[in-house]
């Protein structure tokens, strides 16, 4: 029972974040690149002021799967690296924490880019 409750929260909060993104697209005519940038920076800010963790504890994947979570990981990595290694951490922290995601995206894009071919939209 408890498990289902978690999934319900994840569905609702994750949906809400995407809903807000759609509101932004409709209201401001933002392109997808701008939407992604906005949400990443939002994630960085949320982590920096320390309210990402409580949200994450409640929403779980609802906030970590949206690109906000990616921004938060960048900031979290930077903060913890600064605490452990000092100035060098500013440079290494963020990308180290998100290296998995970025490398995966690049690698899969490269592989599938080689295999597949872009096709005309058939709507």
């Amino acid at each position: 029972m408890n498990e289902w409750y978690v999934y319900l929260i994840v569905f609702a909060t994750g949906g809400l974040v995407c809903f807000l993104g759609q509101v932004l697209i409709i209201k401001t005519k933002m392109t997808s690149a701008r939407i992604l940038v906005t949400f990443v920076v939002l994630g960085v800010v949320l982590e920096a002021v320390g309210i990402f963790q409580p949200i994450s504890d409640f929403c779980k994947a609802g906030i970590n799967v949206p690109i906000i979570g990616f921004g938060a990981s960048l900031a979290r990595g930077a903060i913890s690296a600064v605490k452990s290694t000092g100035i060098l951490g500013i440079f290494t922290g963020g990308l180290t924490a998100t290296a998995g995601g970025i490398a995966a995206a690049i690698f899969f894009a490269f592989v599938f880019g080689i295999i597949f071919k872009a096709r005309t939209k058939k709507l």
Binding site: G14, G15, V17, C18, F19, L20, G21, Q22, L24, I25, S32, A33, I35, L36, F39, V65, P66, I67, I68, G69, F70, G101, A104, A105, I106, F108, A109, F110, F112, G113, I114, F116, K117, A118, K121, L123
Partner: peptide, 29 residues
């Protein structure tokens, strides 16, 4: 096609980030 249907529903999750790297890779091959 999913993106055209769902809009921000696929852009905002990490899937949108992945798509935004793979689609130009295919395109500019």
């Amino acid at each position: 096609k999913i993106g055209a249907f769902a809009g921000a529903g696929t852009i905002v999750p990490i899937t949108g980030f992945s798509n935004s790297i793979t689609s130009p890779a295919l395109e500019f091959k």
